[in-house]
Design a binder for these strands. Structure first.
Lengths: 103, 103
DNA sequence: GCCTCATATGTCGGCTCTGACATATATTTT
DNA sequence: AAAATATATGTCAGAGCCGACATATGAGGC
């Protein structure tokens, strides 16, 4: 997690709940965001591999292009549940997700 | 994932969206449930290690005993987000979660 | 049996996330 | 450089999850 990336996220609506850290994020909050970003990166990779548009991916998983865009950008309004469901829908297996997260 | 366990979950409110499988669950739905159960098992393990009650854990993570019970039983009303936040709150690191999921 | 503590189940008002839509901004193609 | 396509951003009503509470069931000692 680079500081630049954190700043970008913070500016996009991520909020702190604690104090004395770089951007006001507790370690747990940082880990949580880090984890979501790993999943969103994995989703981007898998879509790139398939050479399909966000719109096509959206249809595939029963969502909309705008939500896919938010997923891939790590928007604060996107849940881990949705990321996981989307990844499973594009063929990722639990082990793949585990590896992505542990990496 | 044993069939008995799946049946138990199904009976507790899990709903299918697809067809031709053992309990009407698509592979993706099965993977999703499997994944949640891995996280809930990890949470149970970590609470057991600390020798604290559900009530105490609830206070620790800012929730209630009933929700902790639901988390640990894999209730359908519990999100992965909440499970992950709870695990991080009791000291799990992203790598720990990755390992739990990949296992 | 009763009492105590732990876990499970059901319900509910409030809050968050969701898909959908509109629209803006890149990026590619012609 | 205009048209076409892809991605990003903002908003909203409805769906789903949240903590909290009440209550039930279980496990243990007395």
């Amino acid at each position: 997690m680079t500081s630049a990336r954190m700043a970008k996220l913070k500016a996009k609506g991520w909020r702190s709940g604690s104090a004395a850290e770089f951007l006001g994020l507790s370690p747990e909050e940082s880990y949580f965001i880090e984890l979501k970003l790993k999943l969103s990166d994995e989703l981007k990779k898998r879509r790139a591999k398939r050479n399909i548009s966000q719109h096509q991916l959206a249809q595939l998983i029963g969502s909309s292009q705008s939500r896919v865009a938010k997923m891939e950008r790590g928007d604060a309004s996107v849940s881990i549940d949705l990321l996981v469901k989307s990844l499973l829908a594009v063929g990722a297996k639990p082990k793949d997700l585990g590896r992505s997260i542990a990496a």
